[in-house]
Nucleic acid binder design. Structure first.
Length: 288
DNA sequence: CACTTGACCTGTCCGC
DNA sequence: TGCGGACAGGTCAAGT
């Protein structure tokens, strides 16, 4: 579910909400969601203060004053929702999409010394929270293999195109979803950027021209920046750190718009399977 | 090594 | 209304 723009939105929200708060206690119902030994939690989490909230690819990192870090992956249905003193009642414009917490999807709870709480909810239990020494985070397998951040100012179109060389004989859709090629792209922004660049998702990487790579680079960055501005995409589960939805889906051009008109040429958008994923294109703008 | 497929889970939606 | 099957935004492991 959450891709780079959604995780970045959560990061920004948490940065505002939890820095300097001190962890008082934790609860975790599912060993799979939070596999650390209780001893580590007692020694390095309880009593530690939050010093920073960072993101790399789709992974969140909550740094602690103990020199440990909570490393979090939301996978498909994970949510990180902070609840402070204020109670948002029904009809309030700030009302959270999420009801009372904890609920049946709550996997991990952090309670701070001021009584506020951070909930990690995850319906499908694919997501996880791990407590690691901050210095070891860059050494975990995922961090060693993951590609560059596509929105960094110094990430160039040439570097973008060069990253695909290793995946020459697969489809462009499979390649752009590959986290070792570029970090943070998921199914929504893959479809949206391929539409923007007028590239059919089943085209093989080694048939994509330099101009097409350049266009894809520009479109991918534009769509992700727009999505961050809109607070991400909420189709079903995604919410930000306050439990509120993002509005990018109101601006989507093809994703989940099968049967509707292409905003460029009015041709009907179709959906099929590519790289094992639901894929949306305009069959006029994007041809094999 | 590159590539594809299935597995991990729960919930929802669609067709019969 | 009930039931089975397909599907869901992400990664891995295991297969070829």
């Amino acid at each position: 579910m959450p891709e780079l723009p959604e995780v970045e939105t959560v990061r920004r929200g948490l940065h505002e909400l939890i820095i300097n708060r001190t962890v008082k206690k934790t609860d975790h119902d599912a060993p799979k969601s939070f596999p650390n030994a209780d001893a580590d939690v007692r020694e390095f989490l309880i009593g530690a203060a939050i010093t920073d909230v960072r993101r790399r690819a789709k992974v969140l990192m909550i740094d602690l004053s103990s020199a440990y870090t909570l490393v979090i992956h939301l996978k498909m249905t994970g949510q990180l929702v902070y609840r402070g003193d204020s109670v948002f009642g029904a009809g309030h414009p700030n009302e959270s999409l999420i009801g009372e917490l904890p609920d049946r999807s709550t996997r991990v709870t952090l309670e701070f010394t001021d009584g506020s709480r951070l909930f990690f909810n995850d319906q499908r239990k694919f997501g996880w929270v791990k407590l690691l020494p901050t210095l070891e985070v860059p050494n975990i397998d995922f961090m060693k293999k993951v590609g560059p951040e596509p929105l960094e100012a110094d990430f160039t179109a040439d570097e973008f195109a060069a990253r695909f060389a290793r995946r020459a004989k697969t489809s462009i859709k499979a390649a752009i979803l590959d986290q070792t090629v570029v970090a943070g792209v998921g199914n929504i922004y893959a479809d949206e950027s391929l539409w923007g660049a007028r590239i059919h998702p089943k085209r093989l990487v080694n048939t994509i021209t330099p101009d097409e790579f350049k266009k894809l680079y520009t479109e991918l960055r534009a769509v992700m920046n727009l999505a961050i501005e809109k607070g991400g995409s909420t189709d079903k589960n995604y919410v930000n750190a306050e439990g509120k939805r993002g509005s990018y889906m109101d601006f989507a051009r093809v994703f989940r718009r099968e049967g509707l008109a292409c905003p460029r040429c009015q041709t009907e958008i179709i959906k099929f399977k590519a790289a094992g994923r639901g894929t949306h294109i305009c069959p006029h703008c994007q041809q094999l």
